[in-house]
Amino acid sequence: MEGVYRILSAEIIGPDVKRFEVQAPRVARYWKPGQFVILRAIEDGERIPLTVVEADPEFGVIVLIVQGVGKTTRTLNSLSEGDMIPDVAGPLGSPSDIEMFGTVAVIGGGVGTAIAYPTARALAEAGNRVVTIVGARTSDLLILVDELEAVADTVIVTTDDGTAGRAGFVTDALADVIAERRVDRVIAIGPLPMMAAVSALTLPHEIPTVVSLNPIMVDGTGMCGGCRVSVSGETKFACVDGPEFDAHGVDFELLAARNSSYCEFERRRLAEMGEK
């Protein structure tokens, strides 16, 4: 059944961002929104986590959206249709809480938009009024806006430089949404500073807020503890207890520090890659 993870399609959807359809029947069959896979781009490669954006259980296909930030993600993005991925393990992690909450603001920053998309869709299907806010530095970096338009009640686009949508940060847009109407829940997925800012914004309004954390992972089964994060003073393993957590309890600074653990190594590997 398993063992063959073939890339069925690979499409560039933004600068350094690629969308893949990958044959992975087990993952496709059992996946729920919010869950991810851990894959290796090459034999002997590093294991990295990637969110499953969509899955087709019937055809055994999953969709991944990958931003090339370092050695492994760039190697992956150099692959094309017909290429094989040596390992795709999953699904992993706890699924998102999908319930009828009322009005939910789903905020995606950068490639976090890809991670937020399946959750936004599932929330809409569960009957929620979904307001999505999609942010990027500049218009070229915006992804999945059309797809989100199709599932959400409202889509607000923000760019730091004003090249698309309104100029400014996602938090500016969120502040306006909160001022205008009752928001029952906020889900924010993107770079750590963005998630920390959203969390700080919703705290005084007492709006339950969920973030999807992206610590460094190895096994994804709760075995190494490398993905541990601090939530409301408790140690949690993001790969099994998360990746989604109550934003108001997350120690973002600590996570940022832990994510920089290997930055020297990562820079060196990337430089070597560039030389080749």
Binding site: V218, M223, C224, G225, R228, T235, D251, L254, S261
Partner: peptide, 26 residues
């Protein structure tokens, strides 16, 4: 029994503190 225990003491989240499972698996 693969779930690593930690000491639950201050500073255990600092970069460079790792479980034996993580260190050995890497």
């Amino acid at each position: 029994a693969g779930l690593p225990r930690f000491l639950e003491v201050p500073g255990e989240h600092l970069v460079g503190v790792q479980s034996a499972n993580e260190f050995l698996t890497r």
